[in-house]
């Protein structure tokens, strides 16, 4: 290393240092989230495996502007709630060869309380990694004799919203050990892999640079506790894996498919990074 390179490296460090100081100006807000009188945990100590990486875990809600934040605080203003309401009607609709509806086995959607806080998880019977969408389609194909819903179909998004909403406020506690361990390891590897022509990993933006801006996008920690999310720029709700597709695509990469082994593993891993945060139900972001 020549003297000149050392000097320029030092200069670069100084510049980076300034940039990091500047980061504090773009810090997320420090506000509570209270919906219908219920306090939702959106700031928590980081899970053990993230000690030294993130001091605490923060919901993406804290990184959004005031108007967007407000929309989520009132279910009448939150456009995502409409999707859950539609699923409440669907809950009663008989479909498939067995003449069954959701209500035939599960009574009310409230029976789903808690599920969103512990999924994705490995199904003890089949050994398969299951998220809510996978459970819904398992029910439809195996119990109802009905066709599986598409990953991004209206029916699936509605049902995801309704089931998720039943766990609003519950603390996320997704297992990463035992049967989940190999999936978690795979998800972690994907999280740190730099994909595409832009060679960006999830970590490059959401771990190393959260709080900073890429153009007008305020980079959050990429937590999934708010999903499904109503995205104002899309004017519709999106699942966590639906968002993964968008993120990976924006690195100029060939994406993985929704429901692929890769995204299932990544969804599990990212969920565990948010262990300690609460399920928001259907969140609002821009």
């Amino acid at each position: 290393m020549t003297l000149r390179t050392i000097k320029t490296a030092l200069a670069a460090t100084a510049i980076l240092g300034c940039a990091f100081t500047g980061m504090t100006m773009a810090d997320p807000v420090d506000e509570p989230m209270v919906i219908d009188g219920q306090n939702i945990t959106i700031r928590a100590p980081a899970p053990e495996f993230l000690k030294g990486v993130l001091p605490e875990v923060l919901s993406g809600w804290l990184y959004r502007d005031e108007d967007t934040r407000k929309m989520e605080l009132d279910d009448f203003d939150n456009p995502g709630i409409i999707y859950a309401d539609r699923a409440r009607d669907q809950w009663e609709v008989v479909d498939g060869t067995e003449g069954k509806a959701c209500v035939s086995c599960h009574e009310s959607p409230e029976a789903m309380k808690g599920l969103r806080a512990v999924t994705p998880r490995v199904d003890p019977d089949s050994g398969k990694l299951m998220n809510i969408e996978a459970y819904v389609n398992k029910c439809r194909t195996e119990r109802m004799g009905a066709e599986a819903w598409g990953d991004k179909s209206d029916h699936m998004m509605d049902m995801l919203a309704l089931i998720s909403l039943q766990s609003r406020g519950e603390i996320i506690n997704v297992a990463m050990d035992g049967a989940a361990a190999p999936f978690w390891e795979k998800g972690k590897e994907i999280y740190y892999t730099r994909y595409g022509l832009l060679e960006l990993s999830c970590a490059n933006c959401h771990e190393q640079n959260n709080g900073k801006y890429i153009r007008s996008d305020h980079l959050s920690q990429g937590q999934t506790n708010g999903f499904p999310v109503y995205r104002l720029k899309d004017t519709k709700i999106t699942s966590a894996q639906g968002r993964f597709v968008g993120c990976v695509r924006d690195t100029r990469a060939e994406t993985f498919k929704i429901g692929s082994d890769e995204f299932n593993a990544l969804e599990l891993y990212v969920a565990t990074r948010g262990n300690g945060l609460a399920v928001e139900g259907v969140s609002v972001r821009h």
């Binding site: 320029t8 994909y195 022509l197 190393q208 695509r249 924006d250 100029r252 060939e254 994406t255």
Partner: peptide, 29 residues
């Protein structure tokens, strides 16, 4: 080549990518 491991993309490179895409289509390059 100047800043090891930097987040900054390489703008003049055409190999060594992981799952390179065709622009912003999400499809393979």
């Amino acid at each position: 080549m100047t800043f090891d491991g930097t987040v900054m993309p390489a703008f003049y490179k055409n190999s060594g990518y992981i799952r390179p895409g065709d622009g912003y289509t999400g499809k393979a390059a």
